[in-house]
Design a protein around this nucleic acid. Sequence first.
DNA 1: CTCTTTTTGGGGGGTACCCCCCACGCTGCG
DNA 2: CGCAGCGTGGGGGGTACCCCCCAAAAAGAG
Lengths: 216, 216
Amino acid sequence: MTEAITVVVADDHPVFRSGLMDVLHTDAAFRVVGEAGDGEAALALVRRHRPRIALLDLEMPKASGLAVAEAVRHEDLGAEVVILTMYKDAGMFRRALDVGAKGYVLKDSAATDIVACLHMVANGRAYISPALSSELLERRASLPVAELASLVELTPAERRVLRLIAQGKTSSEIAATLAISVKTVENHRSHICRKLGLRGPQALLRFALEHKALLE
Amino acid sequence: MTEAITVVVADDHPVFRSGLMDVLHTDAAFRVVGEAGDGEAALALVRRHRPRIALLDLEMPKASGLAVAEAVRHEDLGAEVVILTMYKDAGMFRRALDVGAKGYVLKDSAATDIVACLHMVANGRAYISPALSSELLERRASLPVAELASLVELTPAERRVLRLIAQGKTSSEIAATLAISVKTVENHRSHICRKLGLRGPQALLRFALEHKALLE
DNA sequence: CTCTTTTTGGGGGGTACCCCCCACGCTGCG
DNA sequence: CGCAGCGTGGGGGGTACCCCCCAAAAAGAG
């Protein structure tokens, strides 16, 4: 073993916290350098001890795990954040990602999962409870139903053009690729904009890039 | 229980396959409607039985799990694909996502994990072995080191402008937001393009959208 | 205090995109 | 057959963006 992975643990439920400590003590790679029962105390411990990992309950008195995570990131404290929670709520999960959490583990996970998570995060990787992985997947391809409905209204030629737009091609490049006139391509663009309700410059390109995955 | 979740199982290793069958038989929700030892046989079974789920080994004779997944998708057979593999190879994983696999499970997962995966996929959600979740995360924020290096060379004002571009604002909107001249914004755009080595129309917008996550 | 970088502002030209109009040929449908 | 929808063309105008040039005030680095 090279060096102990220092951890600060924060959870407002003492029983759960001691269970967490037990789990961490079964693996000699970890060294718990601080224990807290609320968010503010947790942040103070991270500031003082600069651990490699902050293992934070999502719901805590005084400051939530997310708030602590945000402070850790903002103050550049160098700790990777792992959020521990009871809820597989998609919104919370997204917010955790947005504040830079590298791990998001459900409390009903097996002890070995938590250990695995901490090891992965310590190695600079991420770990997400699999129950939430579909959230991640949906980020890359989903779009509101309304938009999807209007997407199917596009004619084949229009969809062809849209796909090339998503590939970053200009109108003249598209014209060359499809062996048609630039003017025709521009007409298709206009029609697509109208059908999709897009207005303003670059709106089409933005739409195409955001929904690239749906255009095969 | 409403209705059995029909499954086709394919794995070229008979011992592993029978272990898989055992696992599925412990849960009454599943009904295995076909068993195959290679990719072509698996695809034939899917065509004939139209199962809810196709549980496919990644590496099989005649046709890989990915090839079968592609066919299932292309022929619109309606089955959700779960890929089973020994390797946590990032490239394979990405390709699995690209062909529309909804589950990607490591073979060393616990039996309960596999069952959980199938249940989630049957419910229209996705399930990814947590060891690979970091792959997903990195998709949304990572970028080549070269680009990251040049990103830090941007001045504060330039970064400010770039962030607003990523939000889809036009130059004049940015000018209004920052209370500066449109011409100044355009100058910043030019400088950003130069520093990032971007050429051609809309190149900046494309870059900004793709790396939105890095701009805070 | 110089010298550099940054930020601010502008001129002018070229291209691409958005938006409106129009037309012709083709296909399919009632 | 007429008529709608689609694909293909074009005209013209307005705006936005990209790219080159320049300049001056402000801020930092030496």
